[in-house]
Design a protein around this nucleic acid. Structure first.
Length: 297
DNA sequence: GCCCCTCCACCAAGTCTTCT
DNA sequence: AGAAGACTTGGTGGAGGGGC
């Protein structure tokens, strides 16, 4: 099938005159007449019959008019150059599956960048359940997800590591067991702890590190988010463990101390469905998040 | 006389086939 | 595999014929 013939059909239908249709197509009258002949063969119908002032479409041509116009419109949309991406004029809402830690670290710098670069962009943050986050991304419920996703290896998702953070201990100001920003290992293990764990049963990297040293701590309180942890710590002698960037942001009424055990770093990644990763708005937002995640922001 | 169709000869570009 | 020639397709302008 020669799609150019549909363009000839469209011109003939519009002009009702082979010569004028030829002129609008920058073809000769002869070439347009040949094209009409091929159209007649293709559709097995005269399509346009002679008339004192040109040609008139047949019933079949009238029936074909709308579907052909629709087909050409679709092709033209496909071939049209993509509009350039302009954050300043972009008006849309990004839905982000995330948790309070990533937001606490990224939100201040991110919001400042958004207000400056893209005032028409809104953020809708929803809770990131590690179990269902990939399904949500697949279904288009979220534009992307922010979080650790340590155990997640899904080929159809593109992962960008935004930042990593070490863990520090937090305790109430004036806690008797902190000296020069440090705490003895046996004291740390003996004190009651508050643990942030979104999983059930709760688990923490600190427990694994203590276990490797033959020690065990008592979890006195478990909280579901990092942000609730300081409220428990500041009114008692229990101690807690937080990522350092979060601790310095939210634990203003707390004392921060070096952990007496080696605990691995926590990383925050951005998860996007792989087919969407080259989209201009995703490329732009990824760069925005990387700047927001830069140390010192 | 105007308009369209058909035929002719020719050209350019792309495709297919054959040969080395 | 690549070169070369044959073939196909779709374009051109010009001429001639038929319908209105």
């Amino acid at each position: 099938m020669d799609l150019n013939l549909l363009v000839v059909f469209e011109a003939l239908l519009r002009e009702r005159h082979v010569g004028r249709a030829a002129a609008t197509l920058s073809l000769s009258q002869s070439a347009t007449s040949h094209a009409l002949g091929r159209l007649r063969t293709m559709f097995d119908d005269p399509l346009f019959v002679r008339h004192p002032r040109g040609v008139e479409p047949t019933t079949r041509a009238r029936e074909l008019a709308e579907p052909i116009a629709d087909a050409l419109s679709r092709v033209r949309r496909i071939m049209a150059p993509q509009p350039t991406f302009e954050p300043a004029t972009l008006r849309r809402t990004f839905t982000v599956a995330t948790h309070d830690y990533a937001l606490a670290v990224l939100a201040p710098a991110l919001m400042a960048e958004l207000r400056a670069q893209a005032p028409g962009v809104d953020l809708r943050c929803v809770s990131a359940d590690p179990v269902t986050v990939v399904d949500g991304l697949d279904r288009g419920e979220f534009d992307f997800a922010l979080g650790g996703f340590v155990d997640l290896t899904v080929d159809r998702m593109a992962r960008t590591v935004l930042f990593s953070d070490r863990f520090v201990g937090v305790a109430r100001i004036g806690h008797p067991d902190i000296r020069d920003g440090r705490m003895q290992l046996d004291t740390f293990a003996a004190l009651p702890h508050v643990l942030m764990s979104a999983t059930n049963p709760p688990r923490g990297d600190v427990d694994q590190a203590l276990s490797a040293l033959g020690l065990k701590r008592r979890i006195a309180v478990t909280v579901p988010t990092f942000h609730t942890l300081p409220y428990v710590v500041e009114i008692s002698d229990v101690v807690g463990v937080l990522p350092e960037r979060l601790a310095r942001r939210v634990a203003r009424n707390l004392e921060i101390f070096e952990l007496p055990v080696e605990v691995g770093a926590v990383t925050c990644s951005m998860l996007v469905p792989a087919p969407l990763v080259q989209r201009p708005e995703i490329v732009w937002f990824t760069a925005l998040l990387r700047r927001a995640a830069a140390p010192g922001r």
